[in-house]
Design a protein around this nucleic acid. Structure first.
Length: 548
RNA sequence: GCGGACGUAGCUCAGUGGAUAGAGCAUCAGUCUUCGGAACUGAGGGUCGGGGGUUCGAAUCCCUUCGUCCGCGCCA
């Protein structure tokens, strides 16, 4: 990894300077960046500028010391001090050739690193109530959570994907949903039915009723809610599961909230918290002292009538996750839930866990426009665009890429008309096209008896150097995106890589039978580019087609 | 009112405290007898919402102000 090697070289240089007594010992930040202006070199460091604060020397003087050290390395073609104190670095051609051969040898391993001590991470996301389908508003959290999971895996962590099912039998919403399904079932049977006043009016309720009729027949029009609720719920879950899988999202576990009540976890954990003095009674209800842990008010855990609130199950749920041995918990929530971060964190701390083992990530809401108008979405009246419908119209690749292109913390606008009518202009095609182009090129080369040979790589032209440099940014970008939970950087990166490849393609002819050695070298560059694009797309859950 | 997020090109959005703030789309002008034109090259377009501050240096950090969105239940 080029940047890592450079950082090590810089670090060694600084150490040498310090031990020569030319700089005071300190914990200097080592920084390597890529200059915007290519004339400045392949890489640059502002080390001298930042070190000047501690060192009592001018940035220019420090820069020249660093230059002196770096110039000793044979793989660095030149190092020079410039501007207010930057050190500009140009790498040797041989080094780039070596890097290309390394990338070729690494294959798809270029996108994976391992850790001596992998972290066991539980990431919970989507967790839509089982009273409606996954709709486009949920798509962002689904795509984000899944890609973050892939990034963490690529960075060497062990990741467990979990969907929390709010299936509490006491939930009023779930009762109402079951009543709505039952009414539609009776309607299907031609029986008199009474649709609940605030019932769920969407078409998917009928879909659930139809599934039920198909599976269980027509003998249940008079069964009560205790029969209908679990069935309505599990059928809705099946539909959610189907849509999510089509979207490229598979969970290791669909965790039932009700199971925490059934196995006694909730009451046991509440008793334990009470014994620790984290709970108190007021007006007949039991409160969690969450203000002691940074919340802005204390929260009711058990109502005056004795029924636990959802926080009670959340307490048990998070404890359960820790009990299963996870080092770190990530909850991905939509912005409409950001108010719950503090109280959940408070609950985790009250349970006695360090708060840095719990992380809530908020994805900002997406606004959808259709016919130039904001689409209002309501589960009750059924006015929503489902994720399945979106995929029907633009395909899973476009849908995923669109959600993942932008930072999860920025508000996002989704123009459904544009996605449908001009989907061929979506940036995802730009990247996929580069991949398909390489596949086609390599197939054609093979027909002519030409094969990639990394050992033939030599005498690089500028587009070739830039391409190699860009390819080796992949592990760096993956690590950075995983660390910062900034999954959109992968989308930005592969778009830039595709651009770099197209530039190379325009300027460097690959297949030229009269020059088989150069052809073999350039085919090797195509091969490593193809691998990098494929791995990048794979992290996003987007396919890498061989032809389009 | 309180809390949180976001204000960057006509539109949608990138941007590790660093050198001359970028991309896509849109607009305009170009590139093809050659490996996939779903491509490439170029042009125009900016008080980085406003104002203070921190420092060698701020779109980036702090304060303040304006605007937009979200949340503020013994609902889940």
């Amino acid at each position: 990894m080029i940047r890592a090697e450079l950082a090590r070289a810089l670090s060694d240089a600084v150490e040498a300077i310090v031990s020569a007594g030319q700089l005071p010992a300190a914990d200097y930040p080592i920084e390597i960046s890529e200059p915007k202006n290519p004339a400045h070199g392949d890489f640059a460091s502002s080390f001298a500028l930042t070190a000047a604060k501690f060192a009592g020397k001018s940035p220019a003087a420090i820069a020249s010391l660093v230059v002196e050290q770096l110039s000793k390395l044979n793989w660095i073609e030149s190092a020079s001090a410039a501007g207010p104190g930057f050190v500009n670095i140009r790498l040797s051609e041989n080094y780039f050739c070596e890097c290309a051969r390394d990338a070729f040898a690494a294959g798809s391993g270029i996108a994976r690193t391992s850790k001596p001590q992998p972290m066991r991470v539980n990431i919970e996301f989507v967790s839509v109530n089982p009273n409606g389908p996954i709709h486009v508003g949920h798509g962002r959290g689904a795509a984000f959570g899944d890609t973050l999971a892939r990034l963490l895996e690529a960075s060497g962590d062990q990741v467990w994907r979990e969907f929390y099912v709010n299936d509490g039998v006491n939930s009023l919403q779930m009762r109402l949903f079951a009543e709505s399904v039952k009414a539609r079932y009776r309607e299907l049977l031609g029986l008199p039915f009474q649709f609940p006043d605030d019932g769920y009016k969407g078409d998917y309720v009928m879909e659930v009723a139809e599934r039920f009729l198909k599976e269980f027949g027509d003998s249940h029009p008079d069964d009560g809610l205790e029969f209908w609720q679990p069935h309505a719920q599990s059928m809705m879950l099946e539909i959610q599961k189907r849509d999510l899988e089509r979207f490229g999202v598979k969970f290791d576990c669909w965790f039932s909230e009700q199971s925490l009540h059934d196995d006694g976890s909730v009451s046991r954990d509440i008793d334990a918290l009470r014994a620790k003095g984290e709970l108190y009674e007021q007006d007949g209800a039991l409160y969690l002292r969450s203000t002691a842990f940074g919340d802005d008010k204390d929260r009711v855990v058990v109502r005056a009538d004795g029924r636990p609130t959802y926080i009670a199950s959340d307490i048990a749920y998070h404890k359960n996750k820790f009990d299963r041995g996870f080092d770190h918990l990530i909850d991905v929530w939509g912005a409409d839930h950001h108010g719950y971060v503090q109280r959940t964190r408070a609950a985790v701390r009250a349970l006695g866990y360090s708060e840095d083992r719990f992380e809530a990530i908020i994805t900002q809401l997406v606004r959808f426009y259709e016919n130039g108008k904001l689409v209002e979405m309501s589960k009750r009246d059924g006015s929503m665009v489902t994720l399945a419908e979106l995929m029907d119209q633009v395909g899973p690749d476009v849908a995923r890429f669109f959600y993942l292109m932008r930072s999860h913390e920025a508000h996002m606008e989704f123009d459904l008309d544009l996605a449908r009518e001009h989907s061929e202009r979506n940036p995802v095609y730009y990247v996929q096209y580069a991949h398909a182009r390489i596949c086609s090129l390599m197939a054609r080369a093979k027909e002519q008896g030409l094969e990639a040979d990394p050992n033939a790589i030599e005498h690089l032209e500028t587009p070739e150097r830039e391409l190699i440099k860009k390819i080796w940014d992949l592990p760096f970008e993956i690590a950075r995106a995983a660390n910062d939970r900034a999954v959109h950087r992968v989308a930005t990166y592969i778009t830039e890589l595709a651009k770099q490849y197209h530039d190379f393609y325009e300027k460097c002819r690959v297949i030229s039978p009269e020059n088989p050695s150069r052809s073999a070298a350039r085919l090797a560059l195509c091969e490593i580019t193809r691998t990098a694009i494929r791995e990048g797309l794979n992290l996003l859950g987007v396919s890498a087609p061989q032809q389009m």
